[in-house]
Amino acid sequence: MKNSLKVHAALFVVAFIYAANYSLSKDVMPDYMGPFGIVTLRIVGAALFFAVASRLAAPQDRLVGRADNVRAILCGIIGIGGNQLLFFSGLNYTTPINASLLQTIAPIVVVLASAVLLGEKITLTRVLGIGVGAAGAASVILSRAVGPHAGPNATLGNFFILANATAFGVYLVLVTPLMRKYHPFTVLARIFLVGAFVAVPFGWREALTTNYSSFPLYIWAEILYMIICLTILAYLLNNWALKYASPALLGVYIYLQPILAVIIAVSLGKDHFTLARAGQALLIFTGVWLVSRKPKVAPADPVPLEAVQD
């Protein structure tokens, strides 16, 4: 298989993994396990995997200097612990389609965070894109939730998902210099370790008191999916693809993720797709497209628009 086909295959698999998670997680939460318990299992499992992988793949690689270590700690707090606690808490309350649409605004947050933290220029086109995308996100948050998993706390769940997308956008800006300087496993091992210290105090009780003996086989399969595919495999494929994929190509797969999430959620009977949601999706997609357009004069963005991760 040619390298370009491998990149497309990797990005499609990542998009599909994330898209399926919106519906599969609803089977587990809250009847079998709470969101914080899931986050704890997921982060601790990934932390152990990347700790071993970093020792095998890059035994001599170490984070050097106070600045890089502080940056890694911030990445673990914001991008792993806080990000995932917010995501699963929000998904527990809102619907799969709403969550997938709101996740799509992460590239807009990347541009804003790059402007604040790195001094990147925001063009008029990007300002327009931020406004259009924000209007779409506000429409999703304030709309009345529909579907079998809509509940009284859907608006709160939407806010949590928006905060999750914001945290992930900031994380992308913070982690990129580390990924370019060190082996990916070295960085992932450190930030997942920090993330575990953030998540475990919130979720250890749920993880330990869950009645695992009551789990049917498909619930076990979905939990293993979240630990192995959603966390470990998706991170590995994403980091490999980022070495060869352009920001424009990554942007295409950002749009693909909610489309796949809608198809999966509707086909499994987890959610409904309406004309109002189609309009909200159009606003958000248009905003992300405008923000993702590269300025004509300015140099290329230092932060890739990575596919959305929980």
Rank of each mutant, 00 (worst) to 15 (best):
V303K: 00
E306D: 06
A72K: 09
L290R: 03
L124T: 15
N69Y: 09
V140N: 08
S114Q: 12
I105H: 04
C229T: 09
L63W: 04
A245Y: 09
A245P: 04
E222Y: 14
V303D: 04
T231V: 06
D301C: 09
K270A: 13
R126A: 13
T94Y: 08
I254E: 02
L260P: 03
A207C: 11
L230F: 07
S25M: 15
L208C: 11
V198H: 03
L11V: 06
V140M: 07
L174V: 02
P304W: 10
I130S: 00
E206Y: 12
A276E: 14
A135V: 13
K26Q: 13
K26I: 13
I228H: 02
H272N: 14
R71I: 05
F160Q: 06
G151W: 05
W204E: 00
T155F: 07
R144T: 15
A58E: 09
T286A: 15
I259K: 01
N238T: 15
P304M: 10
V28D: 07
V303N: 05
K270F: 11
I77L: 15
L86K: 06
Q103Y: 07
G287C: 05
P35S: 13
F160R: 02
R205K: 15
T95A: 08
G195H: 04
L124D: 01
G203T: 14
A19K: 02
L102N: 04
L24W: 08
V39R: 06
G37H: 09
V52E: 00
A20K: 00
L118V: 12
P59E: 11
P201T: 08
Y171Q: 07
V187W: 04
S267L: 14
I97M: 03
A9P: 01
I38T: 12
G287E: 03
L174A: 09
L86A: 14
L282A: 15
N98L: 05
G79W: 01
Y244L: 14
R180N: 15
G169P: 05
L193E: 08
P258V: 04
I264G: 10
N153P: 00
G203Q: 10
L193W: 09
G76D: 07
A150S: 14
G195L: 07
N3P: 01
I80S: 03
G251I: 01
G279W: 08
I78L: 10
T125D: 04
L208W: 10
A137C: 13
G119P: 05
M1S: 11
A106I: 08
A106Y: 09
S267P: 11
Q257L: 14
Q103W: 02
V70P: 05
T274H: 10
A19P: 06
V52R: 02
I78S: 02
T94Q: 07
R180W: 01
